[in-house]
Simulated scan of single mutants.
Amino acid sequence: MGEPAIAAEFLYHLRIAVLGISGIVLLSMSWLRSVGAYRPLWMQLVAYGLLLGIAVVEGVLTLRRRSWGGARWAGVALALAASVLSCLSLPTGTPTTAADWAFGSVGWIGVVLLLDRPMVQLVLFLGAHWAITAVNLVLSGPVDEGAVLNFVSGSLGTIGFPLACGVAATALRATAGDAEAARRQTEDIRHSERVAARTAQALQDSYAGLAGSAGPLLRGLADGSLDSNDPDVRRDCWIEAARMRRLFVETDDVPNQLVHELRQYVDTAERRRVRAEMSSYGTAVDPPPEVRLALGNFPLPVLAGARSWARVTVVFTSEFVSVQVIGDCGAIDLPRPGDTAATGAAAGIEIGSFLDADDDTLLMEAKWRRTGRSPS
Rank of each mutant, 00 (worst) to 15 (best):
V167Y: 09
G212R: 12
R307Y: 01
L122F: 02
L295G: 03
L115S: 09
L300W: 08
C329T: 12
P287H: 09
A202C: 03
D267S: 14
A341C: 05
R263Q: 12
Q324R: 15
S153F: 08
L247F: 10
G75N: 03
L218R: 09
L149G: 05
T317E: 04
V123W: 03
S30Q: 08
A197M: 07
S322A: 13
G212Q: 11
T97S: 15
V315L: 10
F151V: 10
R66E: 15
G146L: 08
V76A: 09
L139D: 06
G305C: 04
W368E: 04
D267C: 03
I54W: 02
E3A: 14
P4V: 01
L355Q: 01
F298T: 02
R292P: 08
L122M: 07
V249D: 09
G166E: 01
D205N: 13
S105V: 06
P335V: 10
V302I: 14
G224K: 10
D236M: 14
R66A: 15
V57A: 14
A182N: 07
F320H: 15
R243H: 10
I16R: 11
D227K: 11
S322T: 06
G348V: 08
F248E: 12
T97N: 08
H129I: 07
T371L: 01
S280H: 14
G36I: 06
S376Y: 08
Y281E: 11
V254L: 11
Q185N: 06
T283E: 13
L11N: 09
V106I: 12
P40G: 13
V56Q: 05
V120W: 11
T94Q: 15
V148R: 12
T96K: 02
A168C: 12
A196D: 14
M244K: 02
V321D: 03
G23H: 05
V143A: 06
E145D: 14
I132D: 00
P91S: 13
S213T: 14
L262H: 02
R173C: 00
G166L: 00
P216F: 06
A164D: 06
E145R: 13
E365N: 14
A306N: 02
D232H: 06
G70Q: 11
D178M: 10
F161S: 06
G59M: 05
V325T: 04
F103Q: 05
Q201L: 15
T97A: 08
V84F: 13
L14S: 04
A7D: 06
G53T: 07
R246I: 03
G59S: 06
G296C: 10
S225D: 02
R243T: 05
I189E: 11
R292A: 12
